[in-house]
Amino acid sequence: MKVKTGSSRLIKPFYEETPPQTRSCIPLSVFDLVTYDQHVAIIYVYRPPIPSNMTVELGLRKALYVYREWAGRLHVDNEGNHVILLNDEGVRFVEASIDRALDHIMPIIPSTSLLCLHPSLEGVVELVQVQVTRFSCGSMAVGFTAHHFVADGHATSNFLVAWGLACRGLKIDPLPFHDREIFYPQNPPSFEFDHRGVEYISKTFKQIYPLIDHGIEDIVSYKVRFTSDFLSALKAKASSMRENAKPYSTFESIVAHVWRAITKARGMHASETTHVRISVDGRERLNPRVPKGYFGNLVLWAFAKSKVSNLLNEPLPYAAKLLHDAVASNSSVGDPDPPPGEAAEEHKKKPGYDQYENNNYS
Rank of each mutant, 00 (worst) to 15 (best):
N297Y: 10
I278M: 11
M268G: 00
L300C: 13
A302S: 14
R285K: 12
A320T: 04
K292Y: 15
R289N: 14
V299R: 01
R283K: 14
W259K: 05
E284L: 12
A265R: 12
I278H: 04
L300Y: 13
G267P: 00
A261G: 07
R266W: 01
P315V: 06
L323S: 10
V308C: 04
L322T: 00
W301V: 08
A343D: 13
A326E: 13
V258T: 09
I278P: 01
K305V: 03
P317N: 05
D281C: 10
R289Q: 14
W301Q: 13
A261P: 03
P291H: 13
P339W: 09
E284W: 01
A261L: 09
H269M: 10
N297T: 08
G267F: 01
L316C: 00
F295L: 12
P338W: 10
S271Q: 11
S279V: 07
G282T: 07
P288I: 15
H275C: 05
T274H: 00
A344D: 04
V299T: 11
D337S: 14
A320R: 06
K292L: 15
A328R: 15
R266F: 02
K307R: 12
A328I: 12
S329M: 14
V327N: 06
T273R: 04
W259I: 02
V255P: 03
